[in-house]
C-alpha cells in the first residue's frame, strides 16, 4: 500500500449522506439525491488587551460547526430524525371529500372508496349545490332513503339519494367520508424532539492532476434541528435539513472532532463504476438503501430500520 498525501483539490460531486444510529452504529437512512450541502465552521476570537487597551493576544472560544442541506426527495427517515416522531406501517383512516353529479331525485351515486365509520353515519351528510355554487339542500344519512334522508350501503359503496322534488339532475352532491388505507405514517408529535445521528457524507474530489479521490466527511454527532419547511404546491417539494456538529464524548478515543475528512484513492471499488458518479443513480426515496422498487419501504424494512430508536 502506498502512502499518499492529497494536495489541493476540489469537491466535484456529492454521492450521498448516510445517517447511522448513534448507539448501535446501524444504518438508519440514506439521502441519495442531495441538491446542496454546506458544512460551516466557526470560532469566536476575543482580544486579550493590555495597557491602554492594546491587543496582546486572542482568547479563542466557541468553536463550532454546523451543516445544512436540501434533499430532492422528501425522506421519511430524515423527517423521523427532525421530528422525533414515529414511522408506522399499517392500516390508517384518511378523510376524503367528493363532488359528484346528481342523477336525479331518488337516484344513486357510487362513492370512489368504501366509507367507514359509525354504522349509519359513514357519510353523515350531503350538501347539494346548484348553478353558481348556490346551496340547494342539506340531507342527513338515514337507515333508508326517504323524503329527507339518503341511505348508504358500504358493501356496494352506493348512496341512494332522497326522493325529493328539490333534487334535480345536474346538481352537485358534495360529501366527505373516512376510508381505510394501508399507509406509511410519519408524525410530528408535540412532545417529542429531534434526534442525533452519526453522519457520513460521501463525495468525490479531484486534484490538479485530475486524479479522482473519494472524499468522506465523518460527523460523529450531528444534532438535527427540528426546524424545517416543506413547501407544498408550485415547484418540486424539497426536504431541507440542518444540524449542529457536537463533540462525541461517547468516543473513548477522545479525539473530540466536530468532523473529520478522509481522502483516498480507491483500489477496491473503482470510482467510475461506483454509484452516483457521472450522472448519478436514481434510487428510491424511501431511504432504505436499495430497498423496494415502489419508492416506499416495505413493512419489514420500516421495522428493521426504525426499531432501533
Amino acid at each position: 500500500m502506498t502512502v499518499m498525501q492529497i494536495g489541493d483539490f476540489t469537491i466535484t460531486e456529492f454521492v450521498n449522506v448516510a445517517a447511522y444510529m448513534r448507539n448501535s452504529g446501524l444504518l438508519d437512512y440514506l439521502l441519495e439525491d442531495l441538491q446542496d450541502f454546506t458544512l460551516s465552521s466557526t470560532q469566536e476570537d476575543a482580544d486579550i488587551t493590555g495597557r491602554g487597551g492594546r491587543p496582546i493576544g486572542k482568547k479563542k472560544k466557541f468553536k463550532s460547526a454546523n451543516g445544512n442541506g436540501t434533499s430532492g426527495f422528501i425522506s421519511p427517515g430524515l423527517m423521523h430524525t427532525q421530528t422525533g416522531g414515529d414511522i408506522k406501517y399499517g392500516k390508517f383512516k384518511v378523510k376524503r371529500e367528493e363532488a359528484k353529479t346528481v342523477p336525479g331525485s331518488g337516484g344513486t351515486i357510487v362513492t370512489d372508496a368504501k366509507a367507514v365509520g359509525a354504522v349509519g353515519k359513514e357519510i353523515g351528510r350531503i350538501k347539494l349545490f346548484g348553478k353558481g355554487g348556490v346551496l340547494v339542500g342539506v340531507y342527513e344519512q338515514g337507515t333508508v332513503a326517504s323524503g329527507e334522508n339518503f341511505s348508504y350501503d358500504p358493501a356496494t359503496k352506493t348512496i341512494t339519494l332522497p326522493n325529493n322534488v328539490n333534487i334535480e339532475a345536474g346538481l352537485k352532491a358534495v360529501y366527505a367520508y373516512e376510508r381505510e388505507v394501508t399507509a406509511t405514517n410519519i408524525n410530528n408529535p408535540a412532545d417529542k424532539f429531534s434526534k442525533t445521528r452519526e453522519l457520513w457524507v460521501h463525495c468525490y474530489a479531484t486534484d490538479q492532476c485530475d486524479t479522482i479521490y473519494r472524499a468522506d466527511c465523518h460527523i460523529p454527532r450531528a444534532d438535527f434541528k427540528g426546524d424545517f419547511d416543506l413547501d407544498l404546491g408550485g415547484d418540486q417539494t424539497t426536504h431541507p435539513f440542518s444540524f449542529d456538529c457536537l463533540p462525541d464524548f461517547c468516543d473513548l478515543d477522545g479525539d473530540n472532532n466536530l468532523y473529520e475528512w478522509f481522502f483516498y484513492e480507491d483500489d477496491e471499488i473503482p470510482i467510475d463504476d461506483s454509484e452516483g458518479y457521472s450522472g448519478g443513480s436514481v434510487t428510491a426515496p424511501g431511504d432504505i438503501g436499495g430497498g423496494s422498487q415502489n419508492n416506499f419501504a416495505t413493512e419489514a424494512e420500516v421495522k428493521e430500520v426504525f426499531s432501533d430508536k
Partner: peptide
C-alpha cells in the same frame, strides 16, 4: 368506530334497535 352510537342514535339502548334494522 362502527359502534360509536352517539353519532347515530339518541341513547345506547336505541343502538340495539338500530343495528339489526340497518
Amino acid at each position: 368506530e362502527e359502534l360509536q352510537w352517539r353519532r347515530v342514535v339518541c341513547c345506547s339502548q336505541h343502538f340495539a334497535y338500530h343495528l339489526p334494522i340497518i
